[in-house]
Design a protein around this nucleic acid. Structure first.
Length: 784
RNA sequence: GGGCGGAUAGCUCAGUUGGUUAGAGCGUACGGUUCACAUCCGUAAGGUCACAGGUUCGAUUCCUGUUUCGCCCACCA
């Protein structure tokens, strides 16, 4: 008997699907559209592992299911290649940094890397059988995406939602760019709380605890809690800062924690967000000491030019030497770092573009509530994030590889000039508005904006980008808002949140109706997979070894929203399921002739036929219920159970005696073929290759649809008339068969061997006695 | 410090609105098969449902608290 060669067959069907354009979206279709947003993977992942397989497969199960449920599915593919992740990747690979980069050269390198990465991803999606319409792809750096990102900027500009301000902003001193709150990640760091002596003009000494003595030159005020009796006498006085000797006011504020350190707080330009708040609230002096590349400036006197952490050490040394340092306490504190490079972020005052989000928090919360979340508890993460926001969305980055701002400034008066919509996409460094004259100052000299946009400026309009890939405007309208956003939980605060923001401002609508949140892929010990730990097998290797169907089978294993361990046992189970399906099909086809495929006639079925069809009905019903709620793992369990325990272990055995006859029973064959087709259809979303293979071995000729993936989901057979009496009857039959099997097992008799007689107390009809004698191989059944 | 999710068989996990004996797969033990099955089938052993209270006729399920793991968030200088 022919074995199923997954390597050969999977390759074959990949090509078949591509050549026959099975997954191509038809904009003219009369069916309802079902659009899926694709999470553009960042190209910097040059290692693809089980986690990538898992997250993409999980979204794709739904895509295939919906296609078979009669929707015209629009499933394009995007590649997220612009922005800092790619820049970081290229910098590392070529050992570059911002200060030794030629902008044009650098962008060229980024584009080249992008191309390679896209190919790597595309290859994996193809061998996995991800059913994307490959004629509809985009990358976040291409002209189409740039045009829409810039349009988004212009639209927000017109609507007055943009703020261009010179303000303290989160800053990465390593990447040397402004950041948004969402780009931060907390890290624990052990450090020292240093108790330093300050004194007033009249030489009254007191202690202040600080973990950042390098900020002493930037100190602008001291604060205590007005309820704190210890310091009331200091109110209104001035203090002298050790080493740097500037005089700073001593003020009271209720936010100061009496119990932390000495209860006195040193406020600087700016060590953290609390400093920023206090400086604003009390309009304190501006004394910034940090430079954009993470050093101290001339305010630090002899320490000027030192890196921040080096300066801290040196200043502590000198404080100690001069007797200002009274004691040090070891502490562990949390600090914000840039999630891409883990460098602690600082506040630096620079001019940046922001999107107003703080003033519409409540509106955004309402939008989040209107979305349908799967699983529902994930909504809380978005709500918590919005409530925690303390900065508007900073969208400008002092980097090179990304979408340019369509903006110039008047050299003389600084007036902002934005591009015309018809000219997009545009790079202000390359192009200038012709015949320009400033309306305010009549100058005709313009300075182009050289910053680029936050990469999420593009990712946040993916629904518009994918709708825009279709020419027809009427179809575009039908594609937006889209139906489903599949994504992982760690980008709720970015991809999901920002997309909701954009859609709210642009269209006063939701960008999508439903969101399906998946978890992470973990290694076999439950650890997060990471390049650094090297705890993964490359994705292509896994597929090569077990086949795409088997790996996809593993990927169905997690409950939605939960992490999934890499588990080779499960993949092997997937392989076994493929084999089982193939063998069951082979067995059927051995007996089938062309004319055995005919319409099921319900009226003249035997009891065992009704029984199997009844459970098939249940399986179809449940699979629909589960898939509709994105519970693909439960849907799979249902089908697995039906295949192994109802169809193979029992029904196939029940009908063998009807097939091995001179005149094989045609009814049995009809029921077999009906069940088999339904089974492979229900497996098709999960294991598309084996389903297609079996379909084409027999069914394609009759169903007259060239791919199983274009057929429709099995229907529930109505009027089966499997009465409760019959149900009860057949349950008795099954229990007797079970007993006989047990009996034979205990007596160590082969199941295939015919035994003389078997006695049961269960009352059975003549027909059923005959049936049991046939399938359980017993000569005589005695009912007592 | 706040929030979210988990803790069920040796392992990985299901357990639907509270209701007889808590399930599956893998693994283990014993047996049978090679006439669809790179096997497959049958039978069996294995659980104080993290812990402690409470509500109830009845709790793995609901409530409270504790322990513990994971994740997210936070300005404690």
């Amino acid at each position: 008997m022919a074995k199923y060669n997954f390597k050969e067959k999977e390759k074959h069907w990949q090509n078949f699907w591509a050549e026959e354009k099975i997954y191509q979206f038809n904009p003219q279709s009369q069916k309802s559209f079902y659009t899926v947003d694709t999470p553009p993977p960042t190209v910097s992942a040059d290692y693809l592992h089980a986690g990538h397989i898992m997250s993409y497969s999980q979204a794709e199960f739904i895509v295939r299911y919906k296609r078979m449920r009669g929707f015209e599915v629009y499933y394009p593919m995007g590649f997220d290649d612009n922005g800092l992740p790619t820049e970081r990747y290229v910098e590392k690979k070529y050992n570059l940094n911002k200060n030794n980069i030629n902008r044009a050269e650098f962008i060229k390198k980024c584009l080249a890397e992008t191309k390679i990465a896209i190919q790597t991803y595309r290859n994996l999606w193809q061998i996995l059988g991800i059913s994307v319409d490959w004629t509809k792809t985009y990358s976040t750096i291409n002209q189409h995406s740039q045009r829409i990102s810039q349009w988004s900027f212009l639209d927000l500009f017109k609507k007055g939602k943009l703020i261009h301000k010179d303000d303290p902003v989160y800053w990465c001193t390593n990447c040397q760019t402004a950041l948004a709150q969402a780009d931060l990640e907390d890290t624990e760091e052990s450090s020292f709380l240093n108790y330093l002596t300050f004194k007033t003009k009249d030489n009254k000494e007191f202690l202040i605890a600080t973990s950042r003595p390098e900020l002493l030159p930037a100190c602008v005020a001291l604060f205590f809690n007005p309820k704190d009796e210890r310091y009331k006498k200091l109110a209104g006085k001035k203090a002298q800062v050790p080493l740097f000797n500037q005089q700073v006011p001593i003020l009271a504020d209720e936010d100061v924690d009496i119990d932390y350190g000495t209860g006195l707080m040193m406020v600087c330009t700016w060590g953290d967000i609390e400093d920023v708040k206090k400086c604003r609230k009390y309009d304190l002096t501006y004394r910034a000491v940090f430079t954009q590349d993470g050093k101290l400036n001339e305010l630090a006197k002899e320490f000027a030019g030192l890196k921040i952490d080096k300066a801290r050490q040196e200043i502590i040394k000198k404080l100690k030497a001069e007797g200002f340092l009274k004691k040090q306490e070891e502490i562990i504190h949390v600090l914000n770092t840039h999630e891409r490079c883990k460098t602690p972020v600082e506040f630096i005052k620079t001019k940046q573009w922001f999107i107003d989000i703080l003033s519409v928090k409540n509106k955004l919360l309402a939008q989040i509530n209107k979305l349908k979340w799967y699983p529902s508890y994930m909504k809380k993460r978005a709500i918590d994030w919005i409530n925690a926001l303390n900065q508007d969305w900073c969208i400008s980055r002092q980097r090179f590889y990304g979408v340019p701002f369509p903006v110039w400034y008047c050299q003389q008066c600084g007036e902002v000039i934005v591009a015309q919509e018809k000219d997009l996409p545009i790079d202000p460094l390359q192009t200038q508005p012709s015949n320009y004259q400033c309306a305010k100052c009549k100058s005709n000299k313009l300075i182009p904006e050289k910053d680029i946009m936050d990469t999420w400026m593009t990712s946040s309009v993916t629904p518009l980008i994918i709708a825009g890939l279709i020419e027809d405007k009427a179809v575009q309208k039908k594609l937006y808002p889209i139906n489903l956003r599949p994504q992982a939980f760690e980008i709720i605060r970015t991809w999901l949140f920002y997309t909701v923001v954009k859609s709210y401002y642009h269209h006063q609508s939701l960008p999508f109706y439903e969101v399906m949140i998946s978890g992470h892929g973990l290694d076999d010990k439950g650890q997060k997979i990471s390049k650094r730990l090297g705890n993964f097998i490359p994705a292509e290797k896994i597929v090569e070894k077990y086949g795409a169907d088997a790996v996809r089978y593993w990927a169905t294993g997690s409950t939605l929203g939960e992490n999934l361990r890499y588990n080779e046992q499960e993949i092997k189970k997937g392989s076994r399921t493929v084999t089982k399906l193939y063998n069951a099909a082979q067995f059927c086809f051995l007996h089938f002739k062309k004319d055995d495929y005919s319409k099921l006639k319900i009226d003249d079925l035997l009891l065992e036929d009704k029984w199997i069809l009844h459970y098939l009905n249940q399986t179809v019903k449940n699979s629909v219920k589960y898939f509709d709620n994105y519970q693909y793992s439960k849907a799979r369990d249902e089908v697995d159970n039906f295949l192994w325990h109802y169809f193979c272990d029992n029904y196939l055995e029940f009908v063998k005696h009807r097939l091995y006859q001179n005149e094989p029973d045609k009814k049995a064959k009809t029921v077999l073929s009906y069940c088999l087709l339904a089974i492979i259809k229900m497996y098709a979303p999960i294991m598309p290759f084996i389903a297609e293979e079996i379909y084409n071995l027999y069914f394609a000729d009759f169903v007259k649809t060239k791919s199983i993936h274009l057929t429709s989901w099995p229907e529930i057979i109505k009027n089966l008339k499997y009465s409760s009496k019959e149900t009860e009857e057949f349950e008795k039959v099954l229990s007797v068969i079970r007993d006989i099997r047990k009996y034979k097992s205990e007596k160590q008799i082969s199941l295939g061997e015919e035994v003389g007689e078997y006695t049961t107390s269960i009352k059975l009809s003549e027909n059923n006695i005959e049936f049991i004698k046939q399938v359980a191989k017993v000569k005589e059944i005695i009912v007592k």
